[in-house]
Design a protein around this nucleic acid. Structure first.
Length: 478
RNA sequence: CUGGGUGUAGCGUAGCUUGGUAGCGCGCCAGCAUGGGGUGCUGGAGGUCGGAGGUUCAAAUCCUCUCACCCAGACCA
């Protein structure tokens, strides 16, 4: 490699220090900038563009299953937040409070929403009277605040952007089905759009959302073997409905509590994309969400005909892909490194020699492969390459997960597996909280999920030895 | 919140022990050449050393206080 001997700022290798690598990539790819507000970052154009790509696709998918967008206030009165006991206990420690408006002290302090369940509940209590008012399927795109002690861009910031869906249903069956459907919607999005393989399953009692009857989750594995919760879908049953007195009159004229769900996905997912697909040259973006899918680099652009050809290619390709033509006076080498850092899936080089031969050079971001492509069927070629890149990076991430997934039959074994190989460890669990706590204490691991698709690896709890038929995937998480 | 560390130009840093008024690399600006993996040469601009106070003829350097950030824990999407 020619690079390295120059005075070039390089990113830290993933294998040397994964955390540092992550920070380097996030900054050098131009995704975020730190601000003077502790724990909060500035989302720069390129980082925000990725979020917009995610948002646009998800929003369409939400609407396709009947959800409608709304916007609720960012402040929640303290008394309202306290209506559901488990909920407030779960969130109280990390809530930010507003105590003054101007120079006036507020009679009741307001929290800045850490999540909006209680506001939606209050609204539902008023708006829902009859079975004819159901279901209600709301979603909002907003930011929320959780006062974390330590922060990292995308993975944990005090303010972060997300979407939160809140739905109200007449029956438990309908709410159950909707919770599951939204989880599968997220999973499909992650796998087919972000090339991020996920495990689907349920959270344990200990790990579920504060106030939920059941939390469904998709979990993915990062390059370093750590787990990242990618999205969650909660089933509230009627617990919030009871606390907020949300009732409707059914067809038999009987008063019933509604059944609710909520589901969310945040900008944290961008951190997941970075850590799952990125390499030592920077980001590797899944083609479907890459703000730039093809970057065109003219070579020797002062030479006769080069720029004309480059503009012509930009024109043609723009009809089908998101394309950027870089005509700046940076050298080609600089541009190569720059767009690799930014994770652009395909680089197209066009120079005098190519034009003579009626061809161009395509370079694939995921494996560095160089392809000499004819200009005659370029659109088809690019289309095909984008598709294969998606498949390749999905497969790579899936293999990493397979290679780092083990089974364990004792806490010691689980700890050893995590210490050496990192990753996921499957083990049977009796369902007791004390056993789960023991794992956390002795192996610093948490239960990630109880997969929908179980496997028969034993019939006794790996901690206490009691009979068990529950398989749990354990890991260390971001 | 507990333990450790660091603050000097946009970024990375030297200088601090033995006080004398700041040096280098990257980046930035201009020009010329170059252009298929961070291109070369020439010429420029940019800091008063996190903040406050103190000692001194004199403080980036010594003393006191303070703020911020980073790393490892605990807490978390």
């Amino acid at each position: 490699m020619a690079k390295g001997d120059k005075n070039v700022e390089m990113i830290t290798s993933r294998d040397v220090d994964f955390a540092q690598w992550y920070t380097d990539v996030v900054k050098k790819a131009g995704l975020v900038e730190y601000s003077s507000v502790k724990g909060c970052v500035i989302l720069l154009p390129y980082g925000y563009a990725i979020w917009e790509m995610i948002k646009t696709e998800l929003d369409a998918r939400f609407k396709a299953v009947g959800n409608e967008n709304v916007y609720f206030p960012m402040f929640i009165p303290e008394s309202l937040l306290q209506r559901e006991k488990d909920h407030i206990e779960g969130f109280a420690p990390e809530v930010a409070w507003v105590t003054h408006g101007g120079d006036e002290e507020l009679e009741e302090r307001l929290c800045i929403r850490p999540t909006s369940e209680v506001l939606f509940c209050e609204y539902f209590a008023n708006a829902i009277q009859s079975h004819r008012d159901l279901p209600k399927k709301f979603n909002q795109w907003c930011s929320v605040v959780r006062w974390e002690k330590s922060t990292r861009p995308f993975l944990r910031t005090r303010e972060f952007m997300w979407q939160e869906g809140h739905t109200a249903h007449a029956t438990a069956e309908e709410a159950d089905a909707f919770t599951l459907m939204m989880l599968h919607l997220y999973a499909d999005f992650a796998e087919n759009y972000l090339a991020l393989p996920v495990l689907r399953g349920r959270k344990t009692e200990k790990e579920k959302f504060a106030g939920a009857k059941e939390t469904l989750t998709i979990e993915s594995m990062m390059h370093d073997g750590k787990a990242l919760q990618t999205a969650t879908s909660h089933n509230f049953g009627s617990d919030f409905a009871k606390a907020f007195d949300i009732t409707y009159t059914d067809k038999e004229n009987k008063l019933q509590h509604i059944h609710q769900t909520s589901w969310g996905l945040s900008t944290r997912l961008i951190g997941g994309i970075i850590m799952a697909h990125g390499d030592d040259n920077g980001l590797v973006l899944p083609p479907k969400i890459a703000p730039i899918q093809v970057v065109i680099i003219p070579i020797a652009s002062h030479k006769e005909g080069v720029l004309d050809k480059a503009y012509e290619l930009e024109n043609t390709l723009s009809r089908h892909f998101r394309v950027k033509l870089d005509v700046s006076d940076r050298t080609p080498g600089w541009k190569y490194a720059e767009y690799e850092m930014k994770g652009v899936p395909i680089r197209l080089e066009i120079g005098p020699k190519d034009i003579e031969k009626g061809q161009c050079v395509l370079v694939l971001r995921d494996n560095g492969e160089k392809i000499v492509a004819s200009l005659d069927n370029l659109v088809e070629e690019v289309q095909m390459r984008l598709y294969t890149i998606h498949k390749a990076i999905y497969e790579k991430a899936r293999k990493n997960r397979e290679n780092r997934t083990n089974t364990a039959f004792s806490i010691d074994e689980l700890r050893e597996k995590l210490d050496t190989a990192a990753g996921f460890v499957k083990a049977m669990w009796c369902g007791e909280r004390t056993c789960e706590d023991a794992v956390k204490e002795q192996a610093t691991a948490t239960s990630r999920l109880m997969p929908f698709v179980s496997e028969n690896i034993g019939d006794t709890c790996f901690v206490c030895g009691k009979p068990s038929d529950t398989l749990v995937v354990w890991g260390r998480a971001y």
